[in-house]
Amino acid sequence: MPNTGTVVSSVAHVAVLAYAVVGFSSAKPYEPTMESVAVEVLTPSEFDALTKGDRNSKKVADTPKVAAKKVEPVEAEPKPALPEKKENVEATQPPPEPKPPEPAPPEPKKAEAPPPPPEPKPEPKPEPPKQAEAPPPPEPKPAPKQAEAPKPPEKKPEPKKEDPIQKVLDRKPEPKKPERKPEKPQPKFDPTKIASLIDKRDPGRTPQAAAQASDVTTAGVSRGTASQLQLTRSSMLGNMIREQLYNCWNPPVGTEGMRDLMATIEFNLTQQGVLVGQPRLQSSSSNPAFQAFADSAMRAVHSCTQTSRPLRLPPEDYNLWQNVTLDFILPET
């Protein structure tokens, strides 16, 4: 009787195992999902011509801009746009004079609508800088304007108060309005604070120069039309050598982020890109990790300059890369 169970059980297990071995003979591999990566192919000269953008900037412009207050005189022609820059102290003298007539129209409006008050505000700003250099006449002008400006607002709240106080619950917003308006003009025509409005920046300063004046540094360029930089043959060769050697380079574990480590290595190459003699370490450091770091760089030079894997460099420039001195620095991550 126990035989029945044993036999049945054994047979069943053998059958299940046989099925499993056949059925699970090969694991079904996952469908390989290819992630598409946008790649832009750049020639070495294009790559070297890339301008550095500002990482924090959100703005992408058609042409790259670097924050600059001053136009580089060599390349750029004087542009009519420049005089509009208010920071340019010398150029802005004439424009403020025609402006004073403009504040006049707001006066009749004040009786009707509150918006005018903002208008006089921006105008006083350009004027104080003038005060430093320009004749005193402008000074009295802003004063009467501002004196007039606060008064009409005071009148307006009064008729309003009668209705809202009865209808609306909040008394607070209304008292504030008259307070605010007088406050704002005050700093402007307070003669003691005039000094604070003067451009205190060193007149002899050298503003950052660029081909084009711009307030911001752009994040990048929507079209790759960077201003062309001079690409020298040797800098291109340097990039080619660095790119190939860095691919063979395994920096030692633990040196990540130690960007102050630098191993300068000099070595000679044959015309085929094969190492001649021994690479020579030209730098030293007190950093305890330096030895391992330098050894890894030496290994990289060795492993990438073998006959089986030579450095691929343009043979016509052999005289430029016959003797190579390269600084190994951990790449920025």
């Binding site: 009787m1 044993t6 049945v8 059980s9």
Partner: peptide
């Protein structure tokens, strides 16, 4: 597992 199933079958019949 073989032993268990042998016992299970035997006991079930018993």
């Amino acid at each position: 597992s073989v032993w268990c199933w042998a016992i299970i079958i035997d006991k079930y019949m018993l």
